[in-house]
Amino acid sequence: MEITLKYFGQLVDVMGTHEETRPVDCSTTLALLEQLKKNNAISHIPFQLAINQKLIDQDEAVSLHDGDVIALLPPYAGG
């Protein structure tokens, strides 16, 4: 299964890209989050998750499907 990850805010700087499509072996958002947070560079950045343009509750296991677009949305402070 392949999914697209879209990064925003500080995550763009940390991941070095806005977007990447990659194969994943996890079937839910909880498993995906666990994998993502293994990357030390992003583990300290707070963000919300959206699947196909809809925010989800991060404590819930939402199933992933081939072709899903997952956005990682951190809060911004500047103004």
Binding site: F8, Q48, P75, A77, G78, G79
Partner: peptide
Amino acid sequence: GSIHRFEGQVSVFNYENGPTYRCLF
């Protein structure tokens, strides 16, 4: 409205009892 470098977020909160900033973050 808020900014991080080249990106900006916009939304309207608590509009006609709608979602708020705390529902988002």
